[in-house]
Design a protein around this nucleic acid. Structure first.
Lengths: 191, 191
DNA sequence: AAGTTCGGCAAACGACTGTTTACTGAATGG
DNA sequence: CCATTCAGTAAACAGTCGTTTGCCGAACTT
């Protein structure tokens, strides 16, 4: 049933989804829906959880093996690109509902994205480059990285309908941007 | 009628909006809608145009008077914050429909955001700091700024429901991030 | 003054909606 | 082996929906 919903949300958004629509897609009767969810909002929240499970795995795989700044950047962009490719529907759902019409879902996504920033922050704190950085500056940097990741993922999402050239352009741009940020990081001295 | 739509889209998204709903809000009969738009998508596109008109004015006001990097950063964040405050509905609409369920609207927003990046790029090219920058690097930087602006505006949007403390925190973070980017810019040498 | 466009209305069409109810068979557990 | 939970069904409820049609007054145009 989650799969049915996700499939329908490919070109629709949660607020315009119908109970009957979902059950029809799933091959069930309308009443069956209420056996599993009270609301469509509840189904949305369930989809958020499903979508974000893989995200934390993803970030850890970036910082898993150490390496210079360049390798880290390349690996990060690669991981984002692959993640969008392999979890297209989930990523699209998150992008769409992040500012969508259903508050519960919006808040669930934002909360999870916040936890994500904290996780990135801890990983950054362990890098030698961050020696002497204040808590506040570290959090600011983590948020910058997360926002950048979100933007990049969105860009991949729109491109990745069989347009490899545009896809490569996005990857190149993302790498350059990360390199510029990394440069700013090395010359940072206090806020 | 545009106003009625915009008002309803405060807690809904375009795909779930109904013709009857809009006309009811506008105090007209359902049939009246079709005198002005063939579709609800058409109404959406009209709203996009209305929403983005003020954006170009806004950016020009940032670069209007010159000044050091610091003044520019402060002014940019100020302008974004004020813009979100004064055009709340329009900004919310853009954020919501940028990845929303109606393709025509999505594409209209993306196209306009692209033109926006070009405009920022030209402005950046005029700054002394950009001497020796390649076309590609300039565009990359412009996109980074635009993405950052979008993220910041979204953050303001969620906060600005009578939560001034969180609002200040966002402004501070945005300024720090821009300062870090500016730092990376000064030390950039070719891609 | 005559004609035409413009923006509005009420009414009607069938199709689709969310949700509740009462019922059924299969699995589970004591 | 009997009771209970689980996951499903069909049918019905009163609404709402998008869209078309025919009609009407006011405002321009010529």
């Amino acid at each position: 049933m989650l799969d049915a919903g996700l499939h329908l949300l490919a070109d629709q958004n949660l607020a315009s989804l119908g109970v009957r629509e979902v059950t029809r897609e799933a091959g069930l009767s309308p009443a069956a829906f209420y056996r599993h969810f009270p609301d469509l909002a509840a189904l949305g929240v369930a989809l958020v959880e499903e979508s974000l499970a893989s995200l934390h795995v993803m970030i850890r795989s970036v910082f898993a093996e150490a390496g210079g700044a360049e390798e880290l950047i390349d690996r990060a962009v690669d991981v984002i690109q692959r993640h969008v490719r392999e979890h297209r529907s989930h990523v699209r759902f998150l992008a769409r509902e992040r500012h969508g019409g259903v508050r519960q879902v919006r808040e669930a996504i934002d909360a999870e994205l916040g936890r994500f920033a904290v996780e990135v922050g801890s990983a950054l704190a362990l890098q030698p480059v961050s020696r002497g950085w204040s808590e506040r500056d570290l959090r600011m940097l983590a948020e910058l990285y997360v926002d950048h990741m979100v933007s990049t993922a969105s860009a991949f999402l729109e491109a990745q309908e069989a347009d490899p050239a545009r896809e490569r352009r996005i990857a190149t741009t993302a790498r350059l941007q990360l390199r510029l940020i990394s440069l700013g990081r090395r010359h940072w001295q206090g806020g």
